[in-house]
């Protein structure tokens, strides 16, 4: 009797385990399919960047050959970087090194400013007690969700008025006031920052600003790292503000997304291989950054940002 019950239970367990296994496999297959859909456009982009226009636009013997890299990669890179036959129109819209230089300059400056000053603001709001502290904290939380788009008219008109259009200053300096980064730092400081250490530094005769630089910053380092990645990527990807402020759209001033946009909407450019290459190169830095730092990026997503 006992034996029988045991066997029944064993049978049930085996069935149950099998059912779970089948369920797991089905889910795995669906996930793999979604992964393929996710990666296919990016794969096609890099594949087509290695092909000549004739390969891309000509009819293929089978659809599968369109998924295999071609041999035209060097030529496509050359079209982008140097004066060759028939690419004057291309170089008039897209200058890869200029784009990289401009985007890197803006992104690095904005990223450094936003992380440093947000840290300073969060530190000030955590360590010190003052009358307007509550008001300042509430204010930062309240304006966190106000996007730059809703003030863009007044912003642009103001910048035109004080002759700051076609200038990088309105793209870099506003990074000092990044409410979302401050909010993140505030939460981080509240959970890990030992306030006694500030007191100890004071007793040792350390000045307030030096305390922040030598004690506050090192403790905030992990939060800095995550926010720096996000700030860099979002500045690199930004198209709206640069194209609004750099209103004359001069080639020498364009950021990378502006270069890409200029190539895209130009009918006169018929070199598809080079077009794909331009788009591929523009996303390469962020893809590389992502592959190395994906752990921190995914960890940081949950900490609040505007989405689409």
């Amino acid at each position: 009797m006992d034996k029988y019950a045991n066997r029944a239970a064993g049978n049930y367990n085996a069935n149950y385990t099998r059912k779970l296994k089948i369920e797991g496999t089905i889910k795995l297959i669906i996930c793999i399919l979604i992964t393929i859909v996710c990666l296919l456009p990016i794969w096609l982009l890099f594949v087509n960047a290695t092909k000549s226009t004739a390969d891309i636009t000509g009819s293929a013997s089978n659809a599968f050959s369109r998924l295999i890299p071609g041999t035209n990669i060097i030529r496509n890179i050359k079209t982008l970087t140097s004066e060759t036959e028939g690419n004057t129109e291309f170089l008039r819209a897209f200058k890869v090194f200029t784009g990289f230089r401009n985007s890197l300059f803006i992104s690095i400056c904005a990223c450094a400013l936003s992380v440093f000053f947000s840290g300073l603001t969060a530190y000030g709001l955590t360590v010190y007690d003052f009358k307007l502290k509550g008001f300042a904290t509430t204010f930062i939380l309240l304006v966190m969700m106000v996007p730059v788009q809703v003030v863009s008219t007044g912003f642009l008109q103001f910048m035109v008025q004080i002759k700051l259009y076609d200038n990088y200053i309105p793209l870099i300096i506003p990074a000092i006031a990044a409410p979302q980064v401050v909010f993140f730092m505030l939460q981080y400081m509240r959970s890990v920052f030992p306030l006694d250490i500030v007191e100890a530094a004071r007793i040792d005769g350390c000045g307030e600003f030096r305390t922040f630089m030598q004690i506050g910053l090192p403790i905030l380092k992990p939060a800095f790292a995550v926010q720096a990645i996000f700030a860099f990527v979002s500045n690199w990807n930004n198209y709206y503000t640069p194209s609004m402020i750099l209103i004359s759209n001069k080639l020498e001033q364009r950021t990378m997304p502006m270069m890409v946009a200029a190539v895209l909407n130009n009918d006169k450019i018929a070199d598809f291989g080079a077009k794909y290459m331009a788009v591929a190169i523009s996303i390469l830095p962020v893809v590389v950054v992502y592959l190395f730092l994906s752990k921190y990026i995914i960890g940081g997503v949950t900490l609040g940002s505007v989405k689409g």
């Binding site: 000053f117 947000s118 300073l120 603001t121 530190y123 000030g124 709001l125 360590v127 010190y128 007690d129 003052f130 009358k131 307007l132 502290k133 300042a136 930062i140 304006v143 106000v146 730059v148 809703v150 003030v151 863009s152 008219t153 007044g154 912003f155 008109q157 103001f158 309105p170 300096i173 506003p174 000092i176 006031a177 409410p179 401050v182 307030e208 922040f212």
Partner: peptide
């Protein structure tokens, strides 16, 4: 130490007023 608190949050608010609040009013 209150004055340090104000000093530390000052850059944020100056920039915010100049590049967000005034543009909002201007809008």
């Amino acid at each position: 130490y209150a004055k340090y608190g104000y000093l530390f949050i000052l850059p944020f608010f100056i920039v915010y007023v100049f590049f967000m609040i005034y543009p909002l009013i201007n809008t």
